[in-house]
Amino acid sequence: MSAQRIIRLSIAVVASGASLALSWPYWRDFGYWPESRTMWLAYFILGFILAVYVFYVFLGSLRTLFEHDALEREKSSAACGCGESGCKEDVA
């Protein structure tokens, strides 16, 4: 696993953790069986994993978007002398 991927995965985990904390319904009352403690636990785990996946995919595809850009710029030669392409992480 490359360093890139580890960084991306960590960002995804942290962001999903933050989302999970904000989504935590602290007033839950376990009234109905799909709201029982076991089910809530299953929701939290499943939701967290899926959220990590979505964040990870997002970061990965955004990175590729910038890579494409750099590639195409190389291809169309450096006539315009355009700058950098590395600002993937500042939006997570």
Binding site: V57, G60, T64, E67, H68, L71
Partner: peptide, 15 residues
């Protein structure tokens, strides 16, 4: 076309 030339990117798998 989804990654640098010469790099395996498994785009189909990802999709």
């Amino acid at each position: 076309m989804s990654c640098k030339p010469g790099e395996l990117c498994y785009e189909g798998v990802k999709r």
